[in-house]
Design a protein around this nucleic acid. Sequence first.
RNA 1: CGGGGUGUAGCUCAGCCUGGUAGAGCGCCCGCUUUGGGUGCGGGAGGACCGCCGGUUCGAAUCCGGCCGCCCCGACCA
Length: 564
Amino acid sequence: MRQSTLFGRTLRDAPADAQTPGHKLMLRAAIARPLAAGIYTWLPIGFRVAKKVEQIIREEMNGIGAQEMELPVITPAEYWKETGRWDTLEPVAFRIKDHSGHDFMVSYTHEELVMHHGRSELLSYRQLPVAVYHFQSKGRDEARPRAGLLRVREFVMKDGYSFDADLAGLDKTYWAHHGAYARAFARMGLDALSVESDTGNMGGDVAHEFQVLTDVGEDRIVLCPGCRYSANMEKAVRRAAAGAASTAPAMEPVSTPGASSIEDLVRTLGIEAGGLLKTMLIRAAGGEVVAVVLPGDRELNEAKLRKLVGGGELAFANEADFAKVRGIAGFVGPVGLGARIVVDVSVAERGYVAGANRKDTHTRNVVPGRDFAGERADVHDVKPGDECPSCGKPLEIRRGVEVGNIFKFGPYYADKMGATFLAEDGTRKPFMFASYGIGVSRAVQTIIETNFDDAGIVWPAAVAPFDVHVVAMPVKDAEVRTAAETLVADLEGRGVEVLYDDRDESAGVKFADADLIGCPLRVTVSKRNVGAGKVEVRRRKSGEVLMLDAAAAAAELALLAKPS
RNA sequence: CGGGGUGUAGCUCAGCCUGGUAGAGCGCCCGCUUUGGGUGCGGGAGGACCGCCGGUUCGAAUCCGGCCGCCCCGACCA
């Protein structure tokens, strides 16, 4: 590829609204360009990287016997209505109507469509297990796209789906995908950690996310430095110490004028936040008001609570809700409250200060179990330093980018869609289903976010847009140009992918662009060395420089570029 | 959807407070120069109806109102 004709120019300055290092470099290096908020065009350099990422995924998926196919982008509403997702995806799905008014969704994902095909193609247990996958555009009208390609509204996802006859088979298929994912991410240069994740409100029991730890990530990941435990914050748990039984005296009111927050109470009563009970009134999807009781130093984990109350959206209670359960804003407590009460497992059997459900008043010596009842549940966020649930060491919290996820749905979709096969025992059984996703563009930018230096991108060799960047200078010099073009032709003849900088630019411009674009090997064919029959090779990552004889350079570079 | 910010040339920005008809640097084109780190000199083109609509005013990039786009935080995100 001649750089003089390359579509897409590098930028000396990143646009002001680019925030993360990867976002800036992605734009500066002409990887992709925005077309609208969260909607991007791949430029040729970025497209090459995306295709390499895809190919790695393809090879690993094929390696576990999954079959590539392709489903459409435009999908009829009827299948989505079978599972109810036509309605539940309402806020985030792009929809269109055809000329006669029929409803379609721009594919948000493809579970329903694959299950539909499965129920008509797969009739017998003899055809199972089977796994399929495709690379296809997804449309998601995210309320807030962010950070370039990290969160976009339209993107290509590799999504895979598996059908098994029973749970044991599903388990085996699931872990085969887990292995393929781990290998794929490693090959593309991503240090992806498998973490336990929430299964969301679409059923299923087990799910893992592959997270790349980086400060630019939007997910919070709980990690144990002592063992293998790792989980998304939505799912993470801790080992809670058993408290001693309470010896607190009877409850008594305490006047707390104007002290309606944990901070106020800590200040005015002079006690630790952990000695307070925080009672939050939450309105569940069905309108039910739930009072969640947490120690004053713990935060509510919405994902856990959502799961407990049956999914759907959670909101803070409104005025009418407060009135209904006889709660007073700022002074809500669990004693005498007319609501379903969920007591977090962090709450001990001891005396606390809690709201009295009376203005400007709290109650001392409130003991859970003795003074109020409630169902026990884990609905709190893990904090740094909490004990690991499996080994007890202090946990850490890091940020991560979710580059892939795998979900075990079990019979959920098959049941919703009446998808069954004839089992060995002659009965009809639902397919045991799972799905597996990787966002290609997110993976590309995450590679950049974790592989760069002050000068630009440092591509892992397996996904670099080109293996070798040949820089000729001055390109006006016939001898130099001839030497460079001979080398380029020789390299290409050996299957090496070459970006050839044939532009009449100064050395500084060319080197700066080469660093920015970040191919693993840079070869300089210059006036200085061509007379001596030498070319200079520089490794992008290490900066290591070696001089090669021009005559043998192509053969040696081919080995450096594709060691086998 | 809530909060905050922002919108002037391809990019980075100044001008706005205090109204008078729009600028700089980089980039782009040509020539020479230079050719191992965004080179130098000279010439040149073009380029923003100052996001849009309305209002105030003799006059609006500038003041006022509304809307839109984009960015950030939050909510949301099988």
